[in-house]
Amino acid sequence: MSRTSQLKTRADGAILVAAFSSAGRRYDTHWHTAHQLAWASSGILTVSSPDGTWVLPPTRALWIPAGVEHAMDAGRHTFVCCPYFAADRGPGWTVPTVVGISPLARELILHLAATDPPRAARRRAESVLFDQLVPVPVTTIAVPMPRDPRALDVARGVIDDPADDATLDIWARRTGTSTRTLARLFTAETGMPFGRWRTQVRLRAALPLLAEGLPVATAARRVGYTTPSAFVAVFRKATGIPPGAYFTSR
């Protein structure tokens, strides 16, 4: 059963602290008038926006500028601690930006959340925190969704079970649609053929597994690859680096 604890927000530098256990929790698409630093001190936090999807272990966070729509998924046994900052504060990034979380940045975030200091003290701590936020180069793995109900049913089925090797012909029979129609819809509405789109789904599904520290071979098998080498080759082609290096500092 999930548990939630929450601190009230403050106008001069709001902090939201939510603790989740077991099943975790999802925040559907929303936006804030303040900047947000999406971070989890333990577990895995996944953030999605029109710009992409990011999987964040405790060593990374995502700066989300004010006004940017996003959704968040907290995995099992994940403790989410997201500080918010006034729109005139922060590094000035205008798009979601992944940053590394150093030991000092971690302690500053937890300090702000736990102590709720006065305005002046908070702003000093925020300034030090901003100095610690260094962008980490990452390649986002986009999974655009089709709009047509026929293709959308297939897309949801693939996302629910990325390891399913069903061909587009099989999906056409399952959904009572022609293969040609599904192929046309995926290309027209996602910008990529079905096979490439499913590869993106599999790579995105592998990221939380890799972030949890699972071996590459285990992650590859769980998302539908029969050999680790095939998964590594596809992952490297999509991101430019092998899966074992994706969550390390670069």
Rank of each mutant, 00 (worst) to 15 (best):
A205C: 09
I159E: 04
I170P: 01
Q132W: 00
A183M: 06
M192N: 08
I101E: 07
A120I: 11
P144M: 10
P117T: 00
R196L: 11
L110Y: 02
L110V: 14
R119V: 15
V128M: 11
D116Y: 06
A125K: 11
A113Y: 05
L112W: 03
P162L: 06
T190I: 02
A172S: 08
L182P: 13
V99Q: 08
G157Q: 03
D148I: 02
D153W: 13
E189I: 07
A155F: 00
Q200P: 03
H111D: 15
T139N: 09
R184H: 09
R184E: 06
P117V: 03
R173A: 15
A183W: 00
T139P: 00
G176P: 00
L152N: 11
D169T: 08
D161E: 15
L207Y: 02
A205I: 09
D153P: 13
E189G: 05
G90T: 14
A142F: 10
R196F: 11
I141T: 03
V158L: 03
V99S: 03
V158W: 00
T179S: 08
F130L: 06
L168T: 03
A125T: 11
A163I: 01
S127Q: 12
R174T: 12
T115G: 12
G92K: 09
R123D: 07
P149K: 04
T187H: 10
W93F: 12
P103M: 01
T175I: 07
L168R: 02
P103T: 04
D88T: 13
M145T: 09
A113I: 06
L182C: 06
P208K: 02
P193I: 00
S102C: 08
G92N: 07
I159S: 04
P91N: 08
G100K: 08
I170F: 07
T97Q: 07
L133T: 13
L210F: 02
